[in-house]
Design a protein around this nucleic acid. Sequence first.
DNA 1: GTGGTCTAGACCACT
DNA 2: GTGGTCTAGACCACG
Lengths: 133, 133, 133, 133
Amino acid sequence: MHIHLNPSSGVPIYRQITDEVKVAFLRGSIRPGDRMPSVRELAGNLGINPTTVVKAYDQLENESLIVRRQGQGAFVADGMQLIHPQALSNLMTQAARQMAIEGRRLGLSEIELLAFLQEELAKLRPRSKEKKK
Amino acid sequence: MHIHLNPSSGVPIYRQITDEVKVAFLRGSIRPGDRMPSVRELAGNLGINPTTVVKAYDQLENESLIVRRQGQGAFVADGMQLIHPQALSNLMTQAARQMAIEGRRLGLSEIELLAFLQEELAKLRPRSKEKKK
Amino acid sequence: MHIHLNPSSGVPIYRQITDEVKVAFLRGSIRPGDRMPSVRELAGNLGINPTTVVKAYDQLENESLIVRRQGQGAFVADGMQLIHPQALSNLMTQAARQMAIEGRRLGLSEIELLAFLQEELAKLRPRSKEKKK
Amino acid sequence: MHIHLNPSSGVPIYRQITDEVKVAFLRGSIRPGDRMPSVRELAGNLGINPTTVVKAYDQLENESLIVRRQGQGAFVADGMQLIHPQALSNLMTQAARQMAIEGRRLGLSEIELLAFLQEELAKLRPRSKEKKK
DNA sequence: GTGGTCTAGACCACT
DNA sequence: GTGGTCTAGACCACG
């Protein structure tokens, strides 16, 4: 499972971790029963404080997406299977609603809003000739 | 000038106020020289803490969009004329970038993201038979 | 709302807080809409670290028993009404099951187990002539 | 000697082992001088980590209930005879106190607590038609 | 080695 | 003032 953080995005680190874990499951990178990286290990890899990882794991356990066993580690739970692509939708829906509300608040038309989004997406588009790292 | 707050949007209240003031100017609802509602009056109308209004006015004054005159109140400044329709774009661009980054973080395609936005816009669409207020 | 901690019980502090909040609701000490003590205030009163209170409040918010508003504080949520005396049952059922399993593991009879419990309860019984503090 | 673990009881595994050994003695299943199963053998049978068995044996040796002889294995010690039925009481007393304290913490009456225990015992009761193994 | 809890203290944004 | 997040480091229990 590869987790990559974007420190300047404003999204809390523990939130980025929980989201990436869900995405990893949807991609098939992890499956129920798999052992999660240990708290210390993940914290080390990401260069962050272990308690931040603990917070992320707490959340995941609250959602029954992982289970933790004393002295053994954390494991992907069966509940993870409830994460359907639908779940991603929920994460995105929130972001989309934010933008929709903002646009409406400013009195812009739907077409204008879609154009704004399209433009930002274009900016993020990787250059075609760049090799994938 | 009519200011409407959306407490559940996640946008800070003081930010909603400053944005709405700018929009009010662009719509022609307010003009340089106009008197702004007093802090207490606006706070009362919106049912929020006066210090929140103060923070919004502070910010507007910092941007030279309003001026305050001791004992008289706050007034729309000439600087407000620097607010071009462009300004709206900047506000929206920010929101759009947020959504674009979030979508990229979750590994969704551009078309999927546009669909999400479109759906949220549809939800906000007023019912056809409702009269616009 | 009066929260009292038992530092030597082995029960995590944050867990004692969440439980006591639920009990406080069941007793009618707090009601939906009420403001909860602030994190710093409660931590000060209990003589514990604020982050421990934060952890307790996190849990309560996860269960939709409280809501938090930036800069305003935490408030008892409507979801608290879902806490029926039933909920206490759940907390107790867990403890009871622990004891039942332990007893069975040791091969004791039901009557013997009830006797054990009764004896311990008797030990905790306050002396009749003691004045309530 | 038959040892059965309940992984979901919350009782530490090493504790379950030491307790079951004591119970085995009280039942007459093992006697001073008997050879204990080897660490690897027991760990294999129970499907647990050998170090966990080592910890259990360490504890039993500390209590002089077993002795280890280099290269030969662990044997039930004479000290085991000090285990009186009383010992069972001590184990249970602890569990009972836990439950009593928890109940008191939640403000329940003694009768309510006894009812909770009775209910949990009933749940564990084997079905009438099932033959005892 | 693993997770579980707690402390102390920091910085930030919002009201 | 409020909550939100993160760091650094400690001690414990379990395997």
